[in-house]
Simulated assay, not measured.
Amino acid sequence: MNRIVRENYPVSKLPEELRPTTDLNAVVTVTIEEDTTGGEQRPDQLMTLEEIFALRRPPYLTKEEIDDDVRRDRDMWDD
């Protein structure tokens, strides 16, 4: 896991949404860690089977739609 720690970092240099205080003269410790639980995969990482299944779009076909597809396929075989 990649981790960066900066101690005594001036609050005034932080983006506004990350400032824990309105005192711009304060100093803080900033810790940045790589998120390995989610987000985009790096090209050198392979996806697990569970991740692939989680990303797939379920078909959401009704029983009638499935029956129609099978019937259509059978009708093509008879031609």
Rank of each mutant, 00 (worst) to 15 (best):
N25H: 13
E50M: 03
P58W: 06
Y9P: 01
V27C: 04
I4G: 00
D67Y: 11
D75L: 05
D79R: 14
M1Q: 10
L61R: 12
N8W: 03
I4D: 06
V28Q: 07
D23H: 04
T29G: 09
R72M: 10
T22N: 14
D78S: 09
P43L: 07
R74D: 11
V5N: 09
L24Y: 02
D23Q: 05
R56Q: 13
R72D: 06
N2V: 11
E51A: 04
Q45H: 08
E17V: 09
R56L: 14
P58A: 03
T62C: 02
D79P: 03
T37L: 06
E33W: 01
M76G: 01
D44Y: 07
T36A: 07
L18V: 08
P15K: 14
V11K: 09
D75C: 00
L49Y: 11
T62N: 03
T48K: 12
D75A: 04
V70M: 01
D44N: 14
T31Y: 03
L46A: 13
D69N: 14
E40D: 00
M1I: 10
Q41W: 09
E16S: 15
V27D: 00
I52C: 11
T37C: 02
R71Y: 00
T36H: 12
P20W: 02
R19C: 01
I32A: 13
D75S: 05
D79A: 09
F53S: 13
I52D: 05
N8F: 05
T36N: 13
E7T: 13
I52S: 04
E33H: 00
Q45P: 00
E17P: 05
I4V: 15
T22S: 13
E40P: 00
S12H: 11
I52E: 11
D78Y: 11
V70W: 01
K63S: 09
A54F: 04
R72N: 05
T36K: 14
W77Q: 15
D67F: 11
P20V: 13
P15L: 02
R6Y: 14
R57W: 00
T31R: 08
F53K: 15
T22E: 11
R74A: 05
I4C: 11
R3Y: 01
R74V: 12
K13F: 15
Y60D: 10
F53M: 14
P20M: 04
E34Y: 03
T37N: 09
T48W: 07
D69M: 15
